[in-house]
Design a protein around this nucleic acid. Structure first.
Lengths: 200, 200
DNA sequence: CGTAAGTAAATAAATATTTACTTATATTTG
DNA sequence: CAAATATAAGTAAATATTTATTTACTTACG
């Protein structure tokens, strides 16, 4: 039997991400994608049931999966709060800086009902995404380092500003002077840490 | 001459927002919108040049415009930092709680290149959105209450967590117990304030 | 009655998805 | 161990919808 052409599979995914980043999810069509990848539309349907299936797998596997791996690299739930948070922020910034297209689809995750639903269902089936971060937060609550909020609340406080800063970083890529430098990014990280930690 | 039917104009806008919220921007079509509003597709084209024009006006006027008005109600740039931030957070939470559909399109503003571009261009033409917030931040930098960051950075730190919490609030609307209560929301506001303010 | 708002039906271009066919390779068979 | 075959991967072209947008007509008011 003819072997899978992994290049083609990867081409579909990365070119799809590129189109989404440049023209928007609403302007990604199967024929446009096939043409850009230099394949027949039919080929996409061999690998994916339909357009929704492609989008969901792109989002869950290609974007969230890789993002999780990158963010958790070298992170341990037992780390001190300050060290752990800094590690997570650095990892996230590093990952997105070299994966701009993934970031674009990531943003759609909060808007598109299709992706949102897929994320929820997946979180239920596979157990929580970013489980080590959850344990990290729980331990720091137990130690009295941070307040006892639901973890969704902790996540909002911790990561929402980071993602917004990444957005600004990309906005400023085309301009003469970048305002979101590594230094600014990490100063913000310290602001967030300071807000969250209890006075000892 | 036949008078403009303002109800119809408003119906187009609010039903468009509803479809976007429930099915996603990528599933809003002119025919679906016309059918849901009980009018002919042609009627939409009397009021809007084309689909993009409709989306951009929906986003800028209906969503961002109303959001700005609601958030700035009773807010003064001269307020003490803590009071000002609390006012902004409360206003934003209150507005979105009763405008869920507007929040959905708001989220698309960060993802969709069309809306993103429209926002940037509009910010240049009309002067900055949320100008009173800018003055508020500048004055507090001058007073040494908060650090001297670019205002985009301040905005990320200040508002990104709030929007993320609103998202969680809506996620939990269908579930037995709401975790994002007014109390939790305002506790988070205090966390953010604490992080941003310099020790005095 | 003139004019603008509105409608119903048509149109032309895109779009997701299929059908019918070709190609390349892994496995089987002589 | 080759030739034969089954099988999956792939393609080109077609199809049946769906889509944005127009055209040609109707209505209601100043």
């Amino acid at each position: 039997m003819r072997p899978k052409n992994l290049d083609k599979e990867q081409a579909i995914r990365s070119i799809a991400l590129q189109i989404i980043a440049e023209e928007g999810l609403e302007n990604l069509t199967m024929q446009k994608l096939a043409a850009a990848a230099g394949i027949s539309p039919r080929t996409i349907y061999i690998k994916y049931k339909d357009k929704d299936d492609l989008l969901v797998k792109l989002y869950i596997e290609e974007v969230l999966g890789n993002y999780e791996t990158a963010v958790l690299a070298g992170f341990e739930p037992e780390m001190a709060f300050t060290d752990g948070v800094k590690k997570l922020w650095l990892n996230a910034f590093g990952y997105f800086k070299s994966n701009r297209h993934a970031f674009a689809l990531m943003q759609y995750g909060k808007s598109s009902p299709l992706l949102n639903k897929a994320y929820q269902e997946m979180n239920i089936k596979e157990g929580d995404f970013f489980a080590p971060v959850l344990r990290f937060l729980e331990q720091n609550v137990a130690k009295g380092v941070i307040k006892d909020f639901p973890h969704q609340v902790h996540r909002a406080l911790l990561f929402a500003p980071a993602l917004d800063l990444v957005n600004e970083y990309f906005d400023y890529l085309g301009r003469p002077k970048q305002i979101i430098t590594d230094e600014v990014f990490m100063l913000c990280c310290e602001v967030v840490i300071k807000g969250m930690t209890n006075p000892s």
